[in-house]
Simulated scan of single mutants.
Amino acid sequence: MTILIVEDNATNALILKRLAGKVTDEEIVIEADGSRALSLCHNTFFSMLVVDQMLPGMSGLQFVKAIRMLHRYDDVPVIMVTADQDPKLRETASATGVTGFLTKPVDAVTFRDLLAAHVGHVPPPRVAAR
């Protein structure tokens, strides 16, 4: 299985990838643009998504809404990591389908614990009957 990190800041993406690598041996892919990440999700099944809220192409919330419309992503954990301090964002994110929410700067232990709680808990994608 593979984890997708959608983060436009290269330094933050590298930090998240390294932290995730301490929790799992799964392949970790980074994409900086929300629209390109969505295209990737159409072509590749990811077992977990880590998404920044402020992205070029589309917001993290828009990305999550689009992902949740793909039924094979119904049960895939989505962790939102954001510098946005709007108190309503967490509530909106949860209603959109985000399963974990962290604000930047990310606490390494909290991030690893959150990933560890979700790694390996995703069934394979559903295949539509013909």
Results as ranks from 00 to 15, higher is better:
Leu61Trp: 02
Asp33Lys: 11
Asn43Val: 11
Gly60Tyr: 00
Pro77Arg: 01
Pro56Ile: 12
Met80Ala: 14
Phe46Ile: 01
Val51Cys: 13
Asp75Tyr: 02
Ser59Gln: 07
Glu27Arg: 11
Asn43Arg: 15
Gly34Thr: 06
Asp25Gln: 15
His71Ala: 13
Leu49Arg: 01
Gln62Leu: 00
Val76His: 06
Val29Cys: 10
Arg18Phe: 10
Val51Arg: 01
Phe63Gly: 02
Asp75Cys: 10
Leu40Gln: 08
Asp25Cys: 12
Met48Lys: 01
Leu70Arg: 06
Asp33Cys: 15
Asp25Ile: 15
Arg36Thr: 09
Leu49Gln: 03
Asp33Gln: 15
Ile67Trp: 00
Met80Pro: 09
Gly21His: 07
Arg72Thr: 12
Gly21Asn: 02
Glu27Tyr: 09
Ile67His: 06
Val76Ile: 12
Tyr73Asp: 08
Val50Asp: 06
Gln62Asn: 06
Val23Leu: 09
Pro56Gln: 10
Asn43Lys: 14
Arg72Gly: 09
Ile28Met: 05
Val23Ile: 13
Gly34Cys: 10
Arg68Thr: 05
Ile67Cys: 05
Asn43Tyr: 09
Phe45Gln: 02
Met48Ser: 05
Ser47His: 06
Asp75Glu: 13
Phe46Val: 05
Pro56Lys: 03
Asp52Ala: 08
Phe63His: 08
Leu38Asp: 04
Asp75Leu: 02
Gln62Arg: 01
Thr44Glu: 11
Arg18Asn: 07
Ile28Ser: 06
Met58Thr: 04
Asp33Asn: 15
Gln62Ile: 03
Val76Asn: 09
Thr24Asp: 02
Arg72Ser: 09
Leu38Val: 01
Gly57Trp: 13
Ile67Asn: 02
Leu49Thr: 03
Ser39Lys: 11
Ala66Cys: 07
Ala66Asn: 06
Arg68Tyr: 02
Met54Ala: 15
Ile28Thr: 09
Leu19Asn: 03
Val50Ser: 04
Ile79Lys: 02
Met48Leu: 14
Val29Leu: 13
Met80Gly: 10
Phe45Ile: 08
Val51Ser: 14
Met80Cys: 15
Met54Lys: 12
Cys41Lys: 03
Phe46Trp: 03
Pro56His: 02
Cys41Leu: 13
Met54Trp: 10
Arg68Cys: 05
Glu31Thr: 11
Lys22Met: 08
Thr44Asp: 14
Gln62Gly: 10
Gly57Thr: 06
Pro77Gly: 09
Ala37Thr: 05
Asp74Ala: 05
Val64Trp: 06
Val64Cys: 10
Tyr73Gln: 07
Ile28Trp: 07
Cys41Tyr: 00
Leu61Thr: 03
Leu49Lys: 07
Ile67Val: 14
Ile67Lys: 08
Phe46Pro: 03
Glu31Asp: 15
Ile30Ala: 11
Ala66Thr: 00
Met80Phe: 07
Ala66Gly: 02
His71Ser: 14
Arg72Asp: 12
Glu27Ala: 15
Val51Pro: 03
Pro77Asn: 11
Lys65Cys: 08
Ala20Val: 06
Val50Thr: 14
Arg36Leu: 14
Thr24Gln: 03
Ile28Lys: 01
Gly34Ser: 03
Thr24Lys: 00
Glu26Met: 12
Phe45Asp: 00
Glu27Pro: 07
His71Trp: 12
Tyr73Asn: 04
Ala66Lys: 06
Phe45Lys: 03
Ala32His: 00
Arg36Ile: 14
Arg68Ala: 01
Pro56Ser: 08
Leu55Met: 04
Ala37Ile: 07
Ile67Phe: 01
